[in-house]
Write a protein that binds this DNA or RNA. Structure first.
Lengths: 229, 229
DNA sequence: ACAAAAGTGTTGAGAGTACACCCATGC
DNA sequence: GCATGGGTGTACTCTCAACACTTTTGT
């Protein structure tokens, strides 16, 4: 089967920067390329947008294929279209970024076998194509959104401790935060509810578990920015 | 000449939301469609991305063609790729938004003749395709950026009065601002320099002209958000 | 009893908001 | 001299940032 057009057309792909927190550090999902070009190099997961397929649907499909995870935070990032970004020809890629909660980051067995791995953001290997640029852009966006929205909560399980929440912020912002100020700010936002449960784990005083009140994601209005710490 | 591919490919276009201020109100540039579909309806200017042409270059080219203006603020907005957004077939559009300073908004004669006009944002006609959605998105982005960057300055001539600057903010935010508070905030940012000139025009006390210190555009760091008025 | 993380308040500084009058110019 | 927009300061409130000790649990 062949497709013929009067004018040349680019290929369109989606690429994903999928983040999670592991061991208190921000990680991104990378796949090792099996074919040319950049054979053996690490790259962001992604693939072609199918005929009649919405961009976001394509992104969700790729995400599913790589991680088996549904129902997570996904947002369009930026579209990269430099003519020379792919040596094989004109490929325009719509980049997305996604956040996976730390309790659902196990990769499905098949993808795991195929060279799909979490990499710490502070120790990345060299990447294929312009994927370093895409990742840089994604990290920027993540840090920005962290400050005036509640995206950060997407990285946590349904129930979590305040220290875990603070850990997310510290991991992404790359610096420590004051515990008392952090808790006061969170309390002021009025977006958490206490549960009766406590996290009994380890040898220390158990921490109370909280739940996120709002639906999925929220822009923090009113006072404008809310995490300028 | 024909182009043949093994898999189907979408067309890729760029569309532009070009804003300016006229008579104290935010306006956007629209063109009246000459052909089907949506013949006679108003639409955002835009067109196909050429082979080997960068996305931003394509946007700048369209901008030039419609307005004759070079050297202005241009930023990628979002990519719209719903399969049904164009009745003629699969067309993915990368939307950009642009700001033109109020002293350079005259349209070139040719485009003027061809049904290219400024429209006040508070009195828009019905638009073709999903262009209403794109514009809504653009306005949102513009308002947001206004609050923590200096994009607003892109809408003014090199030298401007403080009242003109305040007018920009009021036009975009759609509400009045306190003159003294506005001026204090601007002064605090330390991004303007006084000139020796005054605007002698009209029948009133002449206003001092200021110049924007920084290069083109700046993110306001440090204190986080800077225009929560 | 001790190790380790959980949890909790106060103070000083800076920014936000509300508010009203005099100034310089052209006619 | 008057109409019109230009230009200026103060007081109150609220949020931010810095800072250290007690509590609860397991071993």
């Amino acid at each position: 089967m062949a497709y013929t057009y009067e004018y040349p057309r680019p290929s369109v792909t989606v690429d994903l920067a999928i983040f999670t927190i592991r061991e208190g550090k921000l990680h991104v999902l990378l796949i090792r390329r099996g074919g040319q070009p950049f054979k053996g190099k690490w790259a962001l997961p992604g693939g072609f947008v199918l005929e009649g397929e919405d961009l976001e649907t394509a992104a969700l499909r790729e995400l599913q294929e790589e991680t088996g995870v549904r129902d997570l935070y996904l947002e369009q990032l930026y579209t990269f279209g430099e003519p020379q970004r792919d040596p094989r020809g004109r490929v325009i890629t719509v980049a997305y970024f996604a956040l996976i909660s730390s309790d659902r980051q196990e990769l499905s067995a098949q993808t795991d076998a195929a060279g799909v791995e979490w990499h710490a953001m502070d120790a990345l290997p060299p990447l294929a194509f312009d994927h370093e640029k895409i990742l840089e852009y994604a990290l920027d966006r993540l840090r920005n959104k962290l400050e005036y929205t509640t995206v950060g909560f997407q990285l946590l399980p349904k129930k979590f401790t305040l220290s875990e929440l603070q850990g997310i912020y510290e991991a992404i912002l790359g610096r420590g935060l004051d515990k008392r100020n952090f808790r006061r700010k969170i309390a002021l936002l009025d977006i958490l509810e206490e549960t009766d449960e406590k996290k009994m784990e380890g040898v220390h005083r158990p921490a109370r578990l909280y739940r996120f009140k709002a639906r999925k994601f929220e822009k923090l209005k009113d006072k404008g920015i809310l995490f300028p710490f």
